[in-house]
Design a protein around this nucleic acid. Sequence first.
RNA 1: GCUGGGGUACCGAAGCGGUCAAACGGGACAGACUCAAGAUCUGUUGGCUUAGUGCCUUCGCAGGUUCAAGUCCUGCCUCCAGCACCA
Length: 888
Amino acid sequence: MAEELNMQKIEAKWQKKWEKEKIFEANPNNKKKFFINFPYPYLNGYLHLGHAFSSVRVDVMARYKRMQGFNVLFPQGWHYTGTPVWAAAQRIKEKEPKQIKMMKAMGFLDKDIGKFSDIQHWADVFVPAAKDDFSKLGNSIDWRRSFITTSMNPPYDKFVCWQFRKLKEKGLVVTGEHPVVWCPKDNMPIGDHDRGEGEGETTQDFIWIKFRMKNSDLILMAGTTRPDALYGQTNLWVDPKGDYVVVKVKDEKWVVGKEVVDKIKNQYCPEVKIVEKIDPKQLIGQWVKGPLVNNEIHILPAHFIKSNIGSGIVYSALEDPVDLYELKKIQSDKTYIKNFNLDEKEVKRLKPIFIIKVSGMEENLGESIGKEFGVKSDKDVNQLEVAKGELNKRVFRKGVMNSNCGICAGKSVPEAQIILKKKLVDEKDAIMFYELSGKVVCRCLTPAIVKVVSDQWYLKYGDKNWKKSTHKELDKMKLYPEAVRPQFNYVLDWLNDWACTHHHGAGTKLPWDNKWVIESLSDSTIYMAYYTISHLIKDIPEDKITDELFDYVFLGKGSGKKEWKKLKEEFEYWYPIDIRSSGKDLVQNHLSFCLFNHSAIFPEKQWPGGFSVNGWLLVNGEKMSKSKGNFFTIREMLEKYPADVIRANLMFGGEGIDDPNFDFSNVDLLIQKLKNWADFATTNYKTAKGSKEETNSDLIFQHHLNGCLKLGSEAMENMMFRTAFDKLFNQMQRALKDYINRGHTNQKVINDFIEIQTKVIAPFCPHITEEIWEKLGNKGFISLAKWPAADESKINPKFDQEEQIIEKVASDINNILKIVLEKQGVKKTKAYIYVLPNELNLYNESIDLIKKKTNLEITVFAVNDKSKYDPESKSGKTKPGKPAIHLE
RNA sequence: GCUGGGGUACCGAAGCGGUCAAACGGGACAGACUCAAGAUCUGUUGGCUUAGUGCCUUCGCAGGUUCAAGUCCUGCCUCCAGCACCA
């Protein structure tokens, strides 16, 4: 027995050796290269187990490729761009109690917390901590190339500026306007996770249609989400008790609800002015003319209209059950008509115009849905709301515009909406308007509004040509797993222009417009290229880092300076990136942005080789969260468990796009298994007893070994690390167990196995395997040893069959034993197995196995051995693969 | 609501037209070893049966295609991720 292993001690030992020998510092040479990494984490605290999963996945691949003889580069940087840390620093400056409590929870002393009011201090604390965590986890990172983002790191800052100037030269950064959820007090947008209340709420697109009043210069603005229904407009609704005003907007006079004036100010026209109040009575009964149809329509009162919601005015289309039943009420109520001074003839004349056909429904949609939901009158408010919602759903999914709908005839409703929005806005018959989908409150407790930000800078991801070349890039790329391709294809088409600048936060200032800071997803799209030179650029004086340098290094433009040559060589050697690995949540933004920016800036030969996408780490089957109490930082895990075990258990937790699960119940088991292996390998290498000749038993074992090795290597290649670990460790161990149980071992076979087994788990458990490797008498690192190739000539399915035969015989014997004992109460101690002569060897070599499984004395006879075979016995007949059995 | 990916025995998970009562790993139960525990090894783990067999019921739910369906098609339920200016 070897002395008890202290895994933690071993890990420190090997980490020191790796560092001393610089074996993970990768420099260009004449070997084939392999460049892999994952997005730099945002360091607003200590790294957690989820980061461990992402990094170890990359590390296992890096180590596997290294053992395959590749020159592997695995660098690691850290992200500081954006608002969270910046805002937290502000809050510490303001001594906000909640933030201070959070810092205390992270373990900082009162006297030190104040220092975190400077974002640089966050980096000073968390960057070394993160490096330490990843190193202790055994990640094979080239730390010389590490860097942080933002203006805290001037060379990187200049790199991002260069990137943006390139994009601008190509016309891919443009200004525009867009709606954001906005805090009027802080005067900045409130991101979804940055709210006091209202997470998940977004801005909703509305369109305000202009209805021009007859014999007047007034325009009534009616808000809607359904421009398609304009073809069926019958009248306008106003709130008879509402407060309406006339406002001057640019050179038009609009009639809107009094309370919506501020919204117009924020979203459309900052100079909007109220001209006068207007009584709704002055509006009711008037005639207006809306777009798309030629007839004029009436203005009618409706109790369900509120002048402070939307624009305060709505147009009516009688396919809507709410409108329909309201009109029915008015038509049948003479006093009402009289009270409002309406023209009875005109009111009675109104009836639904059928503009949309929905399969499975009658022509009169409002009537039809009303009946279905049991609506009797306008008083059934609840049913009406439900019916309206259901109808909208059906219309959106199945509705087709009728022939009376002009340019939209025959189109689906969603298509018609897109066409009409554009047409109406272009022809100045409408403006886009936005509302919050629900209540949002800023952290400063101010209710949020929607603001349309103008002169915002965009990356033109909506550009058709850009999309096209990005698709081409995607098509060429390898995806791990391939199943994510449909999602990528969808996202590339769906992505629209991206607001790439912010008012506040840490980052790089937009080079040509200093009031903007480049937003955090946009400064991280091509920085993998920066890793190739990040260690060298540190030696170049800041003022010598120019666009010419980047042009020369990355694009091969110009003749370049002598001291830039090395940078260019590094870039051209390492680029493109071979695999970028990330969580599935980043498919729709970061990874897709990475594709877009590469296709814009780099030539085709430097487009990424592959993306790997994985799920989100669960702990004991649950999402990791601080509130659930199952949140683990890497450092606290490393205090309790060996890195090799954490690594292996993470990788065995899951693969592909499914969420992997870190199951604590496996941890002790894994520690035991690894220690057992270390013990077995070191005690049996070159000392095990056994024959020299190769027997059937050896062949069966080698069959399994090579089978596992083949499947395991394939899984490694595809980053399917659960399968890989299963084949390369669990299954191989099973094969070894069976081999030993057979009782015929061979020293050379055992030696080979020990070497192979130790090597193939090295990417998962690098420390303990280094230790074993050293104890076996090897001089170099196992991290640099050659990955074993499967010997396919040793794989022969016939061995599987033979094994099954032996299994079956053993299980048959057990079955019979049980029955005999139950029925007759007799205990048997010996079994005689009668086999065909050509099977004798197979059985004799497996005799120990059968013994072990049955706990009997076993004797095997060939059937031609007449002296031992009693044909009168009721044990049955011997056939190929099916021996006769006799128990005594 | 939309887009993509899932739902398999106690749990995790393979299988993607017949060789499937369903690999593999945990767990549980029983046995061997041990003074004992742990570790290790062996067996059992849908039901009923049988001197080594045969049958029945199962792979989210409900239908369908087929001589044959976890495996293909349709509808539904349900879980995960994303749905934008945000890391």
